[in-house]
């Protein structure tokens, strides 16, 4: 029996857990709960497993679109509050249909998996990569200075172009991706729909420009630097304590993740 203040008592034997357990069994990465565990722990593990399952793309193991939208919303919040610079990339495999048509769907799957793995190794631990749908991927790079946008995207593009994917014992193929990107306008509360729409527009430009290339929207520069703040409040300064306070208020913290980007 499970007791909880809000819920009526639940009898575990009334729950149909077998189906959920079966779903999780298909996924080798899960530690299935054993029948000896306490009922609460057992159900909790099944629930955790299902949550995990609902946020992950089964083929590539990347976050799926649902998970990605959650992450995007979180970044939008932090951008609006902190004015930090966050880059959203949309990445699409070029001529993917040809791979499927020429080498079969299994080869297509292998290509998707290879690209997913490559993307994951290209980014920092704090970045997120997701399979957005079909052969389209997306990446969020928090705390990415606008001047680094093209450098990072270009590095990813090149890493994929350098891949050789073994699709059968006798065949190895080369693939390329096109990348479109846009920074969340600093200080601006955007929406997931608008932000991805803007990144998609850049991806479209990359496709139109011949593919295997990167287009990043020219970012808005609206950060307020310590110098600007200093000058803004300059006329309020009457004594040294005030100036010290304002200097503290104005100084921007250093972010060491930046070094990893380069």
């Amino acid at each position: 029996m499970i007791r909880s203040p809000e819920l009526p008592q639940i009898n575990l034997s009334d729950l149909r857990l077998a189906e959920a357990r079966a779903l999780l069994e298909h996924d080798a990465t899960f530690q299935l709960p054993s029948a000896e565990e306490s009922p609460v722990a057992y159900v909790q593990k099944i629930l955790d497993g299902l949550c995990e399952l609902s946020l992950r793309d089964p083929l590539t193991g990347l976050s799926n679109r649902r998970c990605f939208n959650n992450l995007l919303n979180r970044e939008i919040d932090s951008v609006a509050r902190s004015g930090k610079s966050v880059l959203l990339l949309m990445l699409d495999i070029d001529y993917f249909k040809k791979v499927n048509d020429t080498y079969g769907h299994h080869a297509g799957d292998l290509v998707l998996q290879a690209v997913a793995k490559c993307l994951e190794t290209c980014v920092r631990p704090l970045d997120s990569v997701a399979r957005f749908g079909g052969e389209e991927f997306a990446a969020i790079l928090p705390n990415c200075p606008t001047s680094f946008g093209s450098i990072v995207a270009e590095r990813i593009r090149k890493a994929v172009a350098d891949l050789s994917v073994v699709v059968s014992p006798t065949e190895t193929i080369k693939i390329t991706i096109s990348i479109g990107g846009t920074f969340a306008p600093e200080w601006v509360r955007s929406t997931t729909a608008l932000w991805t729409e803007r990144a998609d527009a850049q991806l479209y430009r990359a496709k139109s420009a011949g593919r295997n290339c990167v287009f990043i929207e020219e970012p808005l520069s609206v950060s307020v630097s310590a110098d600007e703040k200093g000058m803004l409040f300059g006329h309020f300064l009457t004594d040294d304590t005030a100036s010290e306070n304002i200097a503290n208020f104005a100084s921007n913290g250093a972010h060491n993740e930046l070094d990893e980007l380069k």
Binding site: V188, S221, F233, F236, F249
Partner: peptide, 14 residues
């Protein structure tokens, strides 16, 4: 207020 001025300035920049 400094915070209101900073935000006003950021708005102007945007």
């Amino acid at each position: 207020e400094p915070t209101a001025l900073t935000d006003a300035y950021a708005t102007v920049k945007v």
